[in-house]
Write a protein that binds this DNA or RNA. Structure first.
Lengths: 243, 243
DNA sequence: TGTCCGCCTTGATGCATGTCAACCGAAGTG
DNA sequence: CACTTCGGTTGACATGCATCAAGGCGGACA
């Protein structure tokens, strides 16, 4: 199970609300129509499990709307989120039918789904498609490793600042103050950051009191100075990640 | 920069000490000879930097002997290891010339290197090669995510037990007691586990006093009961990972 | 042989974060 | 309207790990 950005700026795959940059940008018409023929849509409401940990996985899919999470859990109930999927991200694992993580709808979610075997067949017959998927999964590895730095070495404050800055940059409209609706609960944030909900809540309160962010209700973050927030995040470079 | 297992059981690429399972197993003779023509060898001694963080990366390579580490660091000096490369693991990132991590020789290391552009050209012309690399990088993603669970949720004792069980299983000869030379210092272990050297040392002492492992000197671990060690690791399933 | 220098271990102490518990406000429901 | 539920906040307290500091062991080297 991987989260891969399939976003496409070109209208190559016009009939589909997902923008398959990677897949479609270099596709020939015949390939496009095969993709078209394979796809179908399905929706889940917030909180529902899309794929259970260890279950059979007979499709590949892109997220059309909403937000889903990948989690790995331990016997005693401890849970770690290992991926946060946003629109245009990819679910599925060519070459393997089993899901190593649980996939849960964080908000209401609609997926554009492809039959797994058909997708794999297309993959095998379309070299640039697997090349592009390779590039994307390499990005995914980088993102996971960036996250390992966060989990292993960052303080709670830095962790929360990192997540908020990522969400704010994703939602960036350009005009200040930057404003974003948090797509996930405190629990999901804590799960992603390797913290407890209480710690997340406290750190958000502190960041607010220190004037780094402000909030409109519990789920909307505002930020006048993204640079200040990113400084709190402790990132040396740009720091992209997530997905 | 990714760590990808290129191990090969078949003698397809006979001239090369690295066993390129992935690449060679399905290669045709002409492709094999092109790979042969591109390769060269180079060695580093323990502690030397192979690639600096952010530096140009003009090659792809497999580890022939020794052990190298991938690390990501923060401005203030905090360091997190994000990959541990063992013989047959892969270094390099088709499609991008920049190294997002530092690569350091943990022990003396010999690499079998390929010119990056030549490797990429071969990749583009050899569909099954990129397909196989895709599979391998998906495994890599799974490993990174397994490691995220460790970093985010496991206790110090579980972390150390996890790492030791991985190293012991890698080195497994079948006969008990299992015995393995630790290829990395306490510092590297701490870096990988998101701990300090003192904590690693203490936890190893505790595991020893509790009879879960025993040691011959500071760098050789022995284990009679791998199942017990894995129970300490807190892994629900098999737990593979690393690299 | 003695000295130095990594690497490792052990101890004392402090702090960041987890844990447990109470409470708040909003939304749903009878 | 009362009641419940759920997500979030805040407080008091506990603890696991980091930090700071000292010392041990073995190998390199004069």
């Amino acid at each position: 199970m991987t989260a891969i950005d399939l976003t496409l700026a070109t209208p190559a795959c016009r009939g589909c609300p997902i923008r398959h940059r990677a897949v479609c940008a270099t596709c020939e018409p015949s390939e496009l129509s095969r993709l078209e023929g394979m796809k179908s849509y399905r929706s889940w409401s917030a909180g529902q499990t899309i794929v259970m940990e260890g279950a059979e996985l007979d499709f590949a899919a892109s997220i059309v709307t909403g937000c889903a999470t990948l989690t790995r859990s331990m016997e005693d109930g401890r849970v770690q989120m290992v991926g946060l999927l946003m629109p245009s991200d990819f679910i599925g694992r060519p070459g393997r039918a089993q899901a190593p993580y649980e996939v849960v709808a964080a908000t209401d979610v609609t997926l554009c789904m492809f039959d797994r075997l058909g997708f794999e067949r297309l993959l095998a017959e379309t070299p640039h498609l697997s090349t592009r998927l390779l590039e994307m999964s390499l990005d995914e590895i980088d993102a996971a490793r960036e996250w390992m730095l966060l989990l292993g070495r960052k303080t709670a404050r830095e962790k929360v600042a990192t997540l908020l800055s990522i969400i704010l940059r994703r939602a960036a409209t350009g005009k200040t103050p930057l404003r974003a609706e948090l797509p996930i609960t405190r629990e999901a944030m804590a799960s992603y950051l390797g913290l407890t909900i209480e710690t997340v809540s406290r750190q958000m309160t502190l960041l607010r009191k220190d004037g780094v962010i402000s909030m409109a209700g519990a789920r909307t973050v505002l930020c006048d100075d993204l640079a200040a927030l990113m400084a709190e995040a402790g990132d040396d470079a740009d720091g992209d990640v997530i997905s």
